[in-house]
Every structure is written in C-alpha cells, then in structure tokens.
Design a protein around this nucleic acid. Structure first.
Lengths: 203, 203
DNA sequence: AATAAATAGTACCGGTCGGTACAAAATAAA
DNA sequence: TTTATTTTGTACCGACCGGTACTATTTATT
C-alpha cells in the first residue's frame, strides 16, 4: 500500500512534515497571499520537488485543507460525536473559541478565511472552501435533526435554521480571532452563545 | 472650497462615479485579488489618471472603504441611532441580513472580507480593516453602555461582551452571505439571534 | 495667437507570479 | 560496474504585478 519508491534517489524530506509547514503559511496568508517562494522556503524544498510531490499550488492547498480538517480543526468532529445536543453545541463553541485563539497557530479558521475573496484565477479554490463550509453546516443540520427527533432538543426552529445559526456564530468567532480578541474574551462570547442557544434547557 | 481645477484640461470622468466602480471590484475580489487592470477597466480610466487622482492602489482602497461605510453599509449608523436597545439590535441584524444578501452588489460585508488574509505587502491594509471593525465594535459597546445605564437593557453581561457577541453574529452573517445563503434564510437567522439576544424583553 | 496648466494615452520599468526544462546527483537493480 | 529510475538544484519561461516617464491633447489665461 505504501507508495514509497523502492528505486531511484530517495526523497530528502518527509511529505507529512512539509505539508504541516505549508499549512502554517496558507493559514496565515491565505491562498492567493501565499507565493511559491513562501511555500518552498517554509517547506525547505525547491519548486520541482513541490510540483512532483503535490501537483501544483492548488492541489497542494487542497491537501493542506484536508490536513487542517483532521488536526487543528479536529474539535469539529469530536464535538459532532457528543451524546447530547447541549454538550455538542458546547463542545463546538468551546472548541472554536480555543482553536481560533490558539497562539501556537495563526488565528481563526483556515477554511473560512483563506480564500474568502480573490482574483478570478482562484475561483475554484473559493468554491472548494464554500463547499467544505456547507458540508460542515450540513453535518450540523443532520445532528440537530437527530436531536430534535429523539427529544434531546425542544424548539420550533428547524434543524436547518439551527445549523445556520450555529455556523454563523462559529464563523463570526473566526473574524473576532483575526481581530485579535483574547482567548478569554472569545470564551465569554462562546458562553453567552451557549446559554442563549434555543432548545437547550437552561441550567 | 471646491478643488476643481480652473485651468488645464478638465477631467473626463466623475471622481465619485469611478469610485463607485472601484468599490464594486474591490468588494467582489478583495484588496489583493483586485489588479490595477481590473480597476482601470471597471473605472474606464487609465493608470496615470488613477494614480494622479487617488494616489495609489492602497489609498484608492481606503477611499473606497470610506465610501462603502457611507452607502452600502449605511444601515450600521442608522441602527446605532435607534432609540431603544431592542430596536437598535433589530435594525443591526435586519440591516445586515438585507445588505449582505442584496444581489445588486457583491455578497457580504466588504470591511470584513476584502483583506482578511494576504501577503506581507498588504499588512497595512489588513490592519486598517481590523481597526475599522474594532471601531464599529466600540460603537456598539458605547451604545450598550448607554442602554445599560438608562435601564433600557437588563442583563449581567458587560457592554463589552454584548458588543463582541453582536459583532460576532454580524460577522458570521457575512460568511453565510458569501456561502450563498438566501436573503430569506439569513433573515431567519437574524430573527433567531434577535429573539435570543440577552437583556431584551421577550415579546 | 501665444502661454501655462492640467489631464489622457502609450509605452515602458524592475520585480514577482506560477510553472517547467534540463542536467547533476543519489539510489536500487542487473 | 553498468543501467534504470527518481529526486535534486539551477536557471529559465511568458505573463502579470504595481507604478511611472513622457508626449500629445485639451482647456483657461494672457
């Protein structure tokens, strides 16, 4: 299954390792704001190596987004797996507050901020990120549907609106993070949002 | 007071008119995603005219942001002037929902999305937009402080947190708009946010 | 009609963009 | 040790980037 080549000159770098370096750059500067020079310098490889390994800039970016969803943005899937609607929403908001203001990384959510606008040349990348956001929002919707059905959540709002509302708050938190809000302040916002979220019994 | 020159060849274009054209481009493509070719084509002028009239790309962008705040984003100041906290928050959320999904313009808020990330060269523009957002958030804070003081708003949350929370929702609504949410759907989100906003008596 | 002032248009500047051709170097297989 | 295969590093590609020098043109003033 390993596609490691058994013949020829071996790679002088670890693929996963340099992907992580590329993630840091794309996350901080966005898709179009990142140049190939930025990438090759951060990754410690030269352009032909980058192209032979990852295809081109856009394909590299998509691979980086996959990595981002698995690791720094991992709180999302973990939160989805929470057993109750309340703990799910809480894990979403707390995870976002913590992840978006983690100073060991760029601030905010990469999927939201790295290609919000751009030239026509990056239209496909913009659309790819929109699709990711809509997929995640659909995950929320399905989770809310299940919660409504099993009586875990009591409200007249549809799962659709609840998902859009929660997504809105999380996406707004990313802007707050890029504005430089502190982790504590963003946690206060998350707490407020949780305690006023519809359908979850007050405590 | 008019700085219209009384001697020499007259301008062949109206300054406010071409600023409007520049606004449409920057709004849709962002600061770095917009090239001078995009601008001169949309504005119908050539580069030397652009530079002699507006300085350079960055100065033109700032002038465009000023224009944006006065016109398409004018709901903000109008909402601030509302007499009660409840009508103020309602006007903010409704105005955002309507403005961000108005199909006669690009979707979303220009100040939020046109320079969220970018190369080092656009650092000053990024910071300028962050400052605008923080100024607007401070406007909200002062409005909430006044409402809390005059008993118009009853909650234990500080004006700071309330302002951050409302800003978060509005900023999230811009992402929803770029995702392609419909005006009706975004209005539902705004309605939900309003009816669950802390301190405003339920109706 | 001559002059001065301001704009319009063309053509160009160095630098950087994403992407690649090509040859040297490093490995495994024969 | 030769051969085949893969990666490396350098040097380069055309296109476009933001910005400008220079000239022609259009106006008001003298």
């Amino acid at each position: 299954m390993s596609k490691s080549s058994c013949v020829g000159r071996p790679k002088s770098f670890d693929v996963d390792d340099v992907l992580e370096k590329a993630l840091a750059v794309f996350w901080a500067k966005g898709y179009e704001g990142t140049s190939l020079t930025d990438l090759t310098q951060a990754m410690g490889i030269n352009k032909p190596s980058l192209y032979s390994t990852f295809g081109n800039k856009e394909e590299l970016f998509i691979k980086v987004v996959d990595l981002y969803e698995q690791r720094p943005c991992g709180f999302f899937r973990a939160a989805l797996a929470e057993t109750t609607a309340k703990t799910m929403v809480a894990a979403m908001l707390n995870g976002a507050a913590q992840s978006f203001t983690d100073h060991s990384n760029p601030q905010g959510c990469m999927i939201i901020q790295s290609a919000l606008t751009g030239s026509d040349a990056s239209e496909s990348v913009k659309q790819a990120l929109i699709n990711r956001r809509l997929e995640h929002q659909n995950d929320l919707k399905k989770r809310f549907e299940a919660a409504l059905q099993q009586g875990d959540l009591t409200t007249d709002y549809s799962a659709d609106v609840l998902a859009q509302y929660l997504a809105t708050i999380i996406q707004g938190m990313t802007i707050q993070a890029t504005n430089g809000i502190t982790a504590a302040e963003l946690q206060c916002v998350a707490d407020l949002a949780l305690s006023h979220f519809p359908g979850l019994e007050r405590n």
